[in-house]
């Protein structure tokens, strides 16, 4: 597969995952703000922005509605949902011959939806519905990707992009929320409960969590679930494992010498998560642990880019 094509598929997928993550986080935060909590609206907004990785241009201006609208519709802001969808579509358009017609049509529909006057109007009327419709559109795209596309290298690059983005985003989210989650009882239980549900919902994890641990919420368990669960698709361990599988599948269909460093780096991250317990994480420094996951994701991204997309001609000729 052409390197440029692989790169476009990877980024198309990363941008869509990012759009979904941002949309859901905003939806959850706005819902939470309906209940008075200890933290002010401003503090909650700051925490949301921090959980998105502190992108510039989202400094609190005192008006929640305009802030929220900016995060969804401001195409000039690189963190906005619209920007992510625009770029996902632009990447897809450049590899139109590699993706299925169904994929293209879903993505195109999503693109036209967020650009329509109807979407803005719906956002003002029923914000939650509008945000759900975005997430629905992205879910549809993922569904047709799995059912209509050849499960070859291109498909694996799409998965690679999705899970690497997800591992990174979840680690960022937890890094921001972990201190509050695992703090000793300070707030009254009902507010605390809402905060905890919020974190789980941000990862669509509330129902899955209840199936594993019942609705008895505790900070440590939430962290364990989102960090170390092997079966839940939004957990970091699951995402890293999927990243590893995607790389292995790409490798299997290739006659090029496997990049030792790349396999080693993903393997190391996988082992770091796979052979630890939540107690071990908590007795150590959980924030540093989460931060290290993010750093490793960035490094893995760099290696993928250098090995598959932007390798030097010299290295390729001598291989």
């Amino acid at each position: 597969m052409l390197s440029r094509v692989a790169d476009s598929l990877y980024w198309m997928s990363r941008y869509l995952e990012r759009a979904e993550n941002t949309t859901r986080l905003l939806d959850v935060t706005l819902t939470q703000m309906l209940d008075p909590g200890e933290a002010s609206t401003e503090a909650r907004w700051r925490r949301l922005v921090a959980a998105l990785g502190d992108p510039p241009g989202l400094e609190w201006n005192g008006d929640l509605d305009s802030m929220a609208q900016m995060l969804v519709f401001d195409g000039a802001n690189r963190a906005s949902v619209k920007y992510c969808i625009d770029l996902a579509r632009e990447n897809a358009r450049q590899v139109r011959e590699e993706i299925s017609t169904e994929q293209w049509q879903r993505l195109n529909r999503l693109f036209h939806h967020i650009h329509s006057a109807h979407a803005t109007e719906q956002f003002h009327r029923t914000t939650g519905d509008m945000l759900s419709s975005i997430v629905d559109g992205i879910h549809l795209f993922k569904g047709v990707s799995d059912t209509t596309m050849l499960h070859g290298q291109g498909w694996h690059f799409i998965r690679l992009g999705r899970y690497l983005e997800r591992a990174y985003a979840t680690a960022t989210l937890l890094e921001v929320f972990q201190p509050g989650l695992t703090l000793s009882e300070r707030e009254s239980t009902s507010y605390r409960y809402l905060e905890q549900v919020g974190v789980l919902r941000s990862c669509t994890a509330f129902e899955a969590y209840c199936q594993v641990y019942t609705a008895d919420l505790s900070g440590d368990r939430i962290l364990e679930f989102l960090l170390l669960n092997r079966l839940f698709p939004h957990a970091i361990l699951y995402s890293v494992e999927s990243t590893l599988h995607a790389i292995q599948s790409i490798q299997r269909n290739s006659n090029r010498k496997p990049p030792d460093e790349l396999i080693a780096c993903i393997g190391r991250l996988h082992a770091m998560l796979g052979f630890t317990t939540i107690n071990e994480v908590m007795t150590g420094n959980p924030v540093a642990f989460l931060h290290s996951i993010r750093q490793q994701c960035l490094y893995i991204h760099g290696l993928i880019y250098r090995y598959y997309v932007h390798y030097s001609i010299h290295s390729a000729l001598s291989a």
């Binding site: 052409l2 440029r4 790409i250 090029r256 997309v309 001609i313």
Partner: peptide, 17 residues
């Protein structure tokens, strides 16, 4: 997507040139 080396044209693929 194309590079030349020693007057030979290659395309960059995920499997190398």
């Amino acid at each position: 997507d194309l590079v030349t080396h020693d007057n030979v044209v290659y395309m960059r693929t995920t499997d190398g040139l």
